[in-house]
């Protein structure tokens, strides 16, 4: 069975919410709520909540980055100092803890930030996961609901969309 896409644009966010609710309760064949994607100019937690739980895993990357950064940082610095041929400076111990902790702290933050952003990119499924239909008015002030479903279910979905005064419904072949 071939899958197809349709995108409905709304200017009223509450209508968009009602459309999602109706999609949810319609119980259509060949269509899952997981295939509904909300596209909006700003974040709408109240709308995306309706789509069901879609967990974010960025925090775990952050944790891994923080742990990695601090442990690897300290080990690298201390072992570099231990192997440096001209080691003795100013009577300080060769592996002095306070300076090493300062640098470890910075590396903890640096790797933490990198891993967090990496986690986000993975969450966005970069590179190259573009959802197929997009309209530039979404970045302006419209909310879009993109649905992926079996080709024969698309008309029913469009019907539900049409009940909530959409601005436009865009199919894969254009409008």
């Amino acid at each position: 069975m071939s899958k197809a896409h349709t995108l409905a644009l709304y200017s009223d966010f509450e209508e968009a919410g009602r459309a999602i609710q109706e999609l949810k309760s319609a119980n259509l064949q060949g269509f899952k709520m997981d295939d509904v994607i909300l596209k909006s100019p700003i974040e709408h937690p109240e709308l995306s909540e309706m789509l069901g739980s879609r967990p974010v895993y960025v925090q775990f990357f952050t944790l891994a980055g923080a742990v990695l950064g601090s442990s690897i940082g300290f080990t690298l610095i201390a072992s570099a100092q231990a192997n440096f041929l001209v080691q003795i400076r100013g009577g300080r111990p060769i592996v002095p803890l306070p300076p090493d902790l300062v640098i470890t702290y910075e590396l903890f933050i640096l790797i933490g930030v990198f891993m967090t952003v990496l986690g986000c990119f993975i969450g966005w499924k970069l590179p190259g996961n573009r959802s197929p239909i997009y309209n530039t008015s979404i970045s302006e002030d419209k909310v879009g609901i993109l649905v992926k479903a079996e080709a024969q279910t698309i008309p029913q979905i469009n019907e539900i969309f049409n009940r909530h005064q959409p601005l436009e419904i865009i199919g894969e072949q254009g409008r």
Binding site: T75, A78, S79, A80, Q81, A82, N83, I88, G91, R92, P93, I94, V95
Partner: peptide, 19 residues
């Protein structure tokens, strides 16, 4: 190599001078 050096000589690496 470097890590084992660090662990093996830890106490000598922590000496303050002059003594």
């Amino acid at each position: 190599m470097s890590l084992s050096n660090l662990i093996k000589n830890w106490s000598s690496l922590r000496v303050r001078r002059p003594y």
